[in-house]
């Protein structure tokens, strides 16, 4: 079985925009293989959306490892 040495990376940078109706800003920069650099960047205002994005990224990391294993 080939060894998978890839590392995924997720960076969340969060800040507040005071006075806004939705003050949270969370910028997510993600990659499922850090050797490829950052693959996707998105910004969210909702905690649930941020959680969903993290789950999607983890599934992408897992799918990549499963593809390599098969």
């Amino acid at each position: 079985m080939p060894q998978d040495n890839r590392s995924g990376l997720l960076i969340i940078r969060a800040w507040m925009e005071h006075g806004s109706s939705a003050p949270l800003r969370a910028e997510l920069s993600t990659t499922t293989d850090v050797s490829s650099g950052i693959e996707r960047t998105s910004v969210h205002t909702d905690v649930v959306q941020v959680g969903a994005e993290v789950q999607t990224w983890l599934r992408g990391v897992l799918a990549g490892k499963e593809r390599l294993a098969s």
Partner: peptide, 10 residues
């Protein structure tokens, strides 16, 4: 487009 919100009143 990205967040579905308006700028602040300020």
């Amino acid at each position: 487009t990205q967040l579905g919100i308006e700028p602040t009143q300020g």
